[in-house]
Design a binder for these strands. Sequence first.
DNA 1: TAGAGGGACCGTAACGTTTCAGATTGTTTT
DNA 2: AAAACAATCTGAAACGTTACGGTCCCTCTA
Lengths: 360, 360
Amino acid sequence: MRRPATLASLAAELGVSRTTVSNAYNRPDQLSPELRDRVLKTAERLGYPGPDPVARSLRTRKAGAAGLLLTENLSYAFRDPAAVGFLEGLALACEDAGVGLHLVPASPQREDVAAVHRAGVDGFVVYSVPDDDPHLAAVMSRPVHTVVCDQPQLEDVDRVGIDDGAAITKLAEHVLRLGHRSVGVLCMRLGRDRNDNFVSVDRQRSAHYHVQRRRLGALASVFESAGVDWSKVPVVERFDHTSEDGASAAAQLLDKHPDVTALVCTSDILAVGALTEAKRRGLRVPIDLTVTGFDGIAEADRVELTTVRQPIQDKGRAAGQLLLSAAERNGPKLITLDTELLIGATCGSPRNAEEPWFGP
Amino acid sequence: MRRPATLASLAAELGVSRTTVSNAYNRPDQLSPELRDRVLKTAERLGYPGPDPVARSLRTRKAGAAGLLLTENLSYAFRDPAAVGFLEGLALACEDAGVGLHLVPASPQREDVAAVHRAGVDGFVVYSVPDDDPHLAAVMSRPVHTVVCDQPQLEDVDRVGIDDGAAITKLAEHVLRLGHRSVGVLCMRLGRDRNDNFVSVDRQRSAHYHVQRRRLGALASVFESAGVDWSKVPVVERFDHTSEDGASAAAQLLDKHPDVTALVCTSDILAVGALTEAKRRGLRVPIDLTVTGFDGIAEADRVELTTVRQPIQDKGRAAGQLLLSAAERNGPKLITLDTELLIGATCGSPRNAEEPWFGP
DNA sequence: TAGAGGGACCGTAACGTTTCAGATTGTTTT
DNA sequence: AAAACAATCTGAAACGTTACGGTCCCTCTA
């Protein structure tokens, strides 16, 4: 018995068919308790660890796992509270269904798409990757069910998301109503190339991150409607997503445009950094500077940030449920979750308030 | 072509052998560029998505994934900062190696061990599960490499951990040196059964969570050495691990033993909760009450908790590297990481300080 | 006692791939 | 001109399992 025992060798040893051994493990009702017991006993004696999961997967065409594509250093996913929330929700759904969660190693730097092809999963959840990412293309080429999240509608693919445009519009209207006309924007990365700098309107329009493109687009149109020339609005981008980056982005923006009275950030993390930078400069929030975020993470609550709360955990769970539901597939399913404007303590009227947008 | 294309059908269509098609994907140097191109073109035409990962795994006996067993609601793993840190480190190691991270759905309630058997992975990392957990047994029965973390030494199994005893001893000596003799302890769950209550010395000794057993044991011996009767020291256990539970545990303990001057907690989360409860009661920390934690999470830093910092992220990474290193297997490998006593602002001398343990 | 019914088990055919030891060329070396 | 070589491609044998459609035999019913 040099080579590890297999179902076949076990069957041979017992003098029964492979089917019977298989049934001993998978369909106990298909054989007599005595025989089953004998099978299990012999298995233990021979050191047979039970049916090989990979061989079983090949035969049953079920891997018992959901794949998650992040296209970001995996470790980053655990550092960003929003990503953690999403993961939590997704894990919840997987757990309920009794399937594993397979995190695909897809660093943005490494163009190596092989990991996507190597993943033995029953489907993929794709969370916030740029629309031109080769990993995304690789996932789409796999013949398995896929759910995208915070992603533009792809042909015939399930999707979970929020109405980013509507959400940030409400926020912007709040800022406008307070009288701000001289605003700046901090946003997350817009493409796979690093651009820790001001962003042209062109780059905004052609951003490869759907969520960011959507939010910037909505901001542009609502501010334009209020008479603000969007092409004059400074927008600063950061590739990495930490509060330090938020702080440095705020610094970069305020250095060049000390006149802005409000900083609209496309994420809470960036906004928290902006708050830090404001304090460093001796700017009082919200008296001297208004700051807003997006997401509704715990930290935002702690600093009383005015922001948009999105049900990030529900998003993960919805994505998981969508993926795992054996629902009949007639057309792609779309789920749009609700958001909520959270008024904190970081917004106020600008010091030399202009005419309010709406009447008194 | 009703059924999805396979490597074989593609080979048939092309009039070449399966080997050649396989080589086109896996060993481009083994066939002429022209033929390879023809293969890939035809694959696209027939909608062949490339070699099936499961079939490949079966043949190569490599799944390209590391399993993680947590035996806790997966979602919990994303809520506890320590667990998140561990995951982050583990994910880092997996990413470096280009392998996936397969989170095994193993709720403590569900006794369903099948998920462990179903997981197509090359090895397991087991993080802080009770030593009598059936999931752990299931993992051990699988013929794959396993690394345990925060776990007692298992026969012939790699292990990553810290010296919990030494670490908490340093902490306890600090508390003793300040003069405390009347202490209470808050600890995490000691077994798979829920016991949100005081803990007998017996239950402490037979705790199934290695880390907790170790820490309590070390506390017992260091306090005994200092002349404290450990059997009189109140220890309160909490099954769930949130700061709310820490608060309620502190309340339960202080209600019954209002005389304690120091609360030693076996985790930062519990300690943070204890701080909240102390404040609620109008107890000034550290004047009226000394509180200590364990772990060194970010929140601990924020509240200036005196605690033991353990390199939680390194732990995850070390576990991953150990699992994935193809090192020759001569005897189990053991890695013990360093810890550091972090003096915060939550420790002081008791109001009616007794004779200090050490000289002046 | 014939026939129906059902429990227990079996044989064969996949599942889709990689691997290994050749076979077949055309090209160079001696 | 024979021998050696490299480049390219092939055939058959695994890898370990489960699905499917049986067979066999015993018991129950009428």
